[in-house]
Design a protein around this nucleic acid. Structure first.
Lengths: 190, 190
DNA sequence: TAAAGTATTTGACAATTGTCAAATGTTACG
DNA sequence: CGTAACATTTGACAATTGTCAAATACTTTA
């Protein structure tokens, strides 16, 4: 089940047998239903997840309204970035949008591996760079584009989410409300 | 001149003499005037910089208008994230807003160090995590907040830029136009 | 220090997007 | 198969922000 993840890992920096065994031992597989909360507002995120099957979103609440900040699909590494890296309670929720299977590792165990398998940092650095790049692409979407442009960019950059994620969530991700998105879709389809 | 940077570095993971010497040898110090472009639209960013003195911004052009995406001050590591990490030409400009002194290293030399000083990846991983966190905080600003809220958050999160950066740039960073920002400042000061 | 250049503020009006209410469409399940 | 629950669309109107033009304030330099 973890093999695709190890393959990706190995393509960045050779993964030794010993490290692979350690990761297999430390990664805990959990299976959760749809709409299950892996993290809530005010909690510190102590785990990083590999999403093996399913779909996740992160969101936060502003004026009693949910604002989606990210969608994550299979083979992706998932966490609440600010909370996990800064070791503080955050404002983000992390929730499954489909029944999901995840591998997770606790922050402390991860640090143990970083210290004892120094080459593990090479791969982690590269992966962090990749997710940082993705994050900047999401942010670019939000800046100074019209509602319609944001939706078009979203379709281009993240076509797979369009099929799996309800419109309300996409609308809040794109910084507009559901009705506006609906009108834009209507306009574009003509 | 590089000592504060090395100190910061050393506090994350011990910096060996050999690595320190290598970094000192590889880092090239450049001194540039105000409004100097380190990177332009359509170019690939081949350097990562440490800003020793001065002030930078990154921006891009949308419909003939400049949109600031980031401000960077002393001791910070500066690059065009998407271009530098993905090795592709990007859309971003990187420009000094004050006369500046920077240390820079070429992408290829950096990779050389990553491969030959494997512990260098530990520090780089942690630093990438820190900048990723900062980037997510900037993005949080942009999502579903009113113009006034965005400005207040900016004042709280990045007070030092308020003194050094012209309002036009701050306005475009916050996704509003200059006149709107001016009215908000007026309203708040009452 | 005066003049030119740049930065910020103000006003009037237009365009875009949000809000609320209701209608319609779709899905899941007893 | 019908009903409830949920998702999406549509309409009327309000609020926010943008645009353009002009006035004022601040900086730089000859």
């Amino acid at each position: 089940m973890l093999q695709p993840f190890f393959d990706r890992y190995n393509s960045i920096y050779p993964l030794s047998e010993e490290l692979k065994n350690t990761l297999e031992k430390e990664l805990e597989i959990i299976e959760v239903p749809k709409n299950y909360h892996l993290l809530k507002d005010g909690q510190r995120d102590d785990y990083v997840y590999v999403l093996l099957k399913g779909l996740l979103r992160t969101y936060y609440i502003k004026d009693d309204t949910e604002i989606c900040s990210r969608f994550m699909e299979e083979q992706h590494i998932c966490m609440s970035v600010i909370s996990f890296f800064s070791r503080k309670a955050g404002y983000e929720y992390m929730e499954t949008l489909e029944p999901s299977i995840l591998a997770r590792i606790h922050y402390d165990r991860l640090q143990f591996i970083y210290k004892n398998f120094i080459e593990f940092n090479y791969t982690a650095r590269v992966m962090t760079e990749q997710y940082f790049t993705l994050s900047e692409q999401r942010t670019y979407l939000l800046r100074k584009h019209t509602s319609e442009e944001r939706y078009v960019l979203f379709m281009q950059q993240f076509p797979s989410f369009l099929q799996r994620v309800p419109l309300t969530y996409i609308a809040s991700f794109l910084g507009m409300n559901l009705e506006t998105l609906s009108r834009i879709r209507n306009k574009i389809s003509k």
